[in-house]
Design a binder for these strands. Structure first.
Length: 875
DNA sequence: CGGATCGAC
DNA sequence: CTATGTCGATCCG
């Protein structure tokens, strides 16, 4: 039972204006040691007193009401269900049940290992002073876990320390020490790996193993291979520091005893006797699954002096529930027979099922469902009240179905970081905090080489109300600046929304999701490769700024006819190919490459290389003005392009503004250009559905054009982002040529590339912000892009361009696939996941929690540090 | 897609 | 004296 459910009980008490008093004091009940404890009512009363009236509690009540409303809605729905509908559903569901039953697989042996009160156990092991005391690990704000002694007082994981103190004034609260837990965890994992090299850790203190293979091999093992020795050192209780250690902590119902295992199912004294003639101080384990797991637990305890509980079952869901059965320091097995599974589930409360939490439990309870067999009985009804995914999951649960193998790490879907702190209410602090979060997140993203398209800002105000605001940009972000650019926008909107009141928050988080698919990554890789070569390998590259190794330049010329714009060509190519285009089978594949143009590209590129190598005068097509240029050197060509660009800049300024041309740094839109722009937009109108095809030339651009507003276009500044972006640069400049884009203004940015580092501060003026809710029309795909800033709009354009161009390139087989980092050309970015990373397991039953050990460690450590830094804001 | 919600540890 | 976390997934509109 968690503190949350204690809280729920309290709500009931409060809501029914219940009596207080009546506090049974029991202490001596089932507790041989005479250990003091509190009964449930008393616990609830104390929790209530501590919590009542707090903002937190108010919010809990509110959330509760929302759940109640959901339930009410569901009940109304239920009322409308006719007998006939139900019957039909019953038939359909039962058909599915038959299928599921047929596919039932009892052939695997899955083990779930769960360390008992892990953090607390480690702390007690390492500090004998704590041995007999009630302790919890965490802080005054939040506890991670407690030992079994403290649990008698109702002190549990996820309970704030200050409340725990009221429940148990003698409680010792030990601060978290993730490094230590990580070490111990590693020791345990080393053992587990021997039984299943592909075992699946779930956090620091849990793991799934598939021991099916091990069991087979083990049958042929000689006894000696199954013999393990008692570690006399650890059982006499001396650890490295020479401190006296108890072999186990034990404050539980189970009396402490010197036997190996205390639970009913594991080794007993006579059990040990039966193990036959044994070498002194050793024990031999059998070949059954139970024996294997006993062996594992034995070895864990010998090695770490910590106990673990375990479950053995034909699938992960059942194994997990089994490990809970004889906790602590026990194990349980469901034998691989259908009936055994069903017996196990029969009276099992649904809440015990992984994946069914507080809310689901309550909803099902409203339908009279508490146990798994009731869940099965109501399968028809559930199929009418819940989503497909939900009720099918319910069905799997009630049949005892789950994953029978440990799935490979899936791909991570998002990454985030968040922090709780004492109230922050000034915009300045909020922005700098936001930046800090972005920085941390960017670091983590970079570790895994991930870039995402959606940035989500999460805020929790001082009333514990949580808000999330998301914005998806069309080119992936990964650096601090990129993320912050989007996040600060979202934050600004929120600050504005409560103005003139300050935004009073106690938590802020930033998340990036919408990672590139493997497909998209490939394209990126290829594009990077083709456009970025490091060091001497410079093919057709030019140093953007001499100081920086930020080499980038146009590596692609577009084929003639040079008269048409890039977009015209694009459109033409598309039309040409439209016959072959199968309607978007999958995202990011919309564009069939134009063989002709890509062939042409390769040719041109070759010319470039030739130029480089032979210094023969060659003719190029300038990507800006589309004039043929003959030159002897790259320098000369570059100079031409520079001139071209700077010439463009002046005359190609475009801005469509509302009436507020006075907005600083936002030049007003010359009427003639405006007309041209609008014309352009209108010409391109079609009936194609916007959004269904990124690269569609066509889309409806009618809405709100008159309120459009452009600001400065600035390319993304991050080198990493820039690498694949050369095409975009070309295209952007082409856009300028087309007078579709506003001009960039800053003199620092004459060539359109931001050379300056972003500096601290929230008002970095590296780009202009469009008025909120601007709708810009992408000159590539002509679709309307709602945006609050130009950076995101630029990204969209980048993507549009990249999609078309990169895919052309991708078709060329001989494209190298290595990726070079400009900043460090030794490093190769690979899209692959490294070991120990998060993943999503799509199959039922096994859902891995988000973070690896090390991530958790660093994040939590950061979290506590940051609290201080934040508090310093207020002095 | 964006936002809220759920569940896990 | 105060004081209730952090992550990823999924569902719903």
């Amino acid at each position: 039972m968690s503190s949350r459910s204690a809280m729920d009980d309290m709500k009931k008490v409060a809501n029914s204006s219940c009596n207080d008093g009546l506090l049974l004091r029991m202490g001596l009940n089932d507790n041989k040691a005479g250990m003091q404890g509190l009964d449930k009512e008393k616990i609830n009363k104390i929790i209530m007193e501590a919590t009542k009236g707090s903002k937190f509690y108010e919010n809990e009540l509110k959330k509760d009401q929302q759940v109640n409303q959901r339930i009410e809605k569901m009940m109304q729905l239920k009322e409308k269900i006719t007998a006939q509908q139900l019957l039909k559903a019953q038939l359909q569901v039962d058909k599915l049940v038959m299928e599921l039953e047929q596919s039932r697989n009892l052939g695997s042996t899955i083990v779930h290992i769960d360390m008992d009160a892990f953090y607390a156990a480690v702390e007690m092991r390492d500090n004998p002073e704590l041995k007999e005391k009630p302790i919890a690990v965490g802080s005054m704000s939040m506890l991670s876990t407690s030992n079994y002694h403290a649990r008698r007082f109702g002190v549990r994981a996820a309970m704030p320390g200050f409340i725990a103190k009221r429940l148990c004034p003698h409680l010792t609260i030990v601060p978290l020490n993730f490094e230590k837990y990580g070490k111990v965890s590693k020791e345990v994992r080393e053992i587990l790996a021997e039984y299943d090299p592909n075992f699946m850790p779930m956090g620091l203190d849990e793991a799934y193993l598939n021991i099916t293979e091990h069991l087979e091999e083990r049958l042929n093992w000689p006894e000696d291979r199954r013999r393990f020795f008692f570690n006399t050192e650890s059982t006499t209780g001396v650890d490295e520091d020479g401190m006296n250690m108890p072999a186990k902590f034990n404050e539980d119902e189970v009396s402490s005893s010197p036997v190996l295992f205390e639970d009913n199912t594991s080794l007993m004294d006579d059990d040990l006797q039966q193990r036959g003639p044994s070498v002194e101080n050793s024990v031999v384990f059998g070949t059954s699954a139970e024996e294997v797991v006993k062996e594992i637990r034995f070895r864990i305890e010998q090695k770490t002096q910590l106990t673990a509980s375990a479950g053995i079952a034909p699938n992960t869901m059942l194994a997990k529930m089994c490990s809970d059965r004889n906790k602590p320091n026990g194990q349980y097995r469901i034998s691989p027979e259908r009936q055994a599974v069903l017996d196990f589930l029969k009276d099992l409360p649904i809440r015990k099922v992984p994946g069914i939490g507080k809310v689901t439990e309550k909803m099902l309870k409203a339908l009279g469902i508490v146990t798994c067999s009731e869940l099965y009985q109501q399968r028809a009804l559930l199929s009418l009240l819940f989503s497909e995914v939900s009720w099918r999951n319910f069905l799997d649960i009630s049949l005892g179905l789950g994953s029978t193998h440990l799935e490979k790490d899936g791909e991570r879907k998002s990454m985030s970081t968040e922090r709780t702190f004492s109230e922050i209410n000034t915009a300045e602090d909020q922005y700098s905090l936001c930046r800090e979060l972005c920085r941390d997140l960017a670091q983590e993203l970079q570790k895994e080489g991930l870039k995402g398209k959606t940035v989500t800002l999460k805020l929790k105000n001082v009333n514990f109300e949580v808000k999330t605001r998301a914005s998806t940009v069309l080119s992936s972000v990964s650096t601090e600046e990129e993320i912050f650019t989007v996040a600060k926008d979202l934050l600004g909107t929120e600050i504005d929304s409560v103005a003139p009141h300050p935004l009073r928050i106690r938590l802020m988080g930033v998340r990036v999701s919408g990672f590139l698919t493997e497909e998209e990554k490939k394209y990126q890789q290829k594009s990077i490769t083709s456009f970025l070569k490091s060091g001497k390998e410079i093919g057709f590259l030019r140093l953007q700024t001499s100081e920086k190794s930020n080499q980038e330049y146009f590596t692609k010329n577009l084929e003639a006819p040079h008269r048409g714009s890039f977009f015209d060509q694009k459109r033409a190519a598309r039309q040409l190919n439209s016959g072959n285009i199968s309607p978007n089978k999958s995202k990011g594949k919309q564009l069939i490459p134009d063989d002709k143009s890509s062939a042409n590209f390769v040719e041109e590129t070759k010319k470039v290389t030739d130029l480089q190598n032979s210094s023969v005068c060659t003719v190029f097509t300038c990507p800006v003005c589309f004039e043929k240029q003959s030159s002897n050197s790259l320098e000369e060509l570059n100079r031409h392009i520079d001139e071209c660009l700077s010439g463009m800049c002046l005359k190609d300024t475009v801005e469509i503004s509302k009436n507020d041309s006075s907005r600083e740094n936002t030049p007003s839109f010359p009427p003639q250009f405006k007309n041209e722009y609008v014309d352009k937009c209108q010409k391109n109108k079609t009936h194609q559905l916007a959004g269904t095809d990124q690269s569609a030339i066509i889309s409806d651009s009618s809405a709100n054009n008159s309120t459009e507003k452009f600001g400065q276009i600035i390319p993304d500044k991050s080198p990493r982002e820039r690498q694949p972006g050369n095409l975009s640069d070309i295209a952007r400049n082409m856009c300028m040529k087309q007078c579709l884009f506003p001009k960039r203004i800053s003199e620092d940015n004459e060539d359109g590339f931001d050379k300056t580092e972003h500096t601290e501060g929230t008002s970095s003026s590296c780009f202009f912000e469009a008025k909120e809710d601007s709708v810009l029309v992408c000159p590539v795909c002509n679709s309307e892009q709602k945006t609050t800033n130009l950076v995101s709009f630029n990204r969209h354009v980048d993507v549009c361009l990249n999609k078309g161009l990169i895919q052309e390139l991708a078709e060329k087989e001989d494209f190298p696939t290595k990726i070079y980092n400009v900043e460090n050309s030794n490093r190769v970015f690979s899209g692959g996941l490294s070991k120990g990373q998060q993943y999503t397991n799509p199959s039922q039953g096994t859902k891995r929690s988000g973070v690896t050990a090390s991530q958790s460690v660093s994040k939590k450590a950061k979290s506590s540090n940051s609290k201080h830094t934040i508090e310093m804001f207020f002095k």
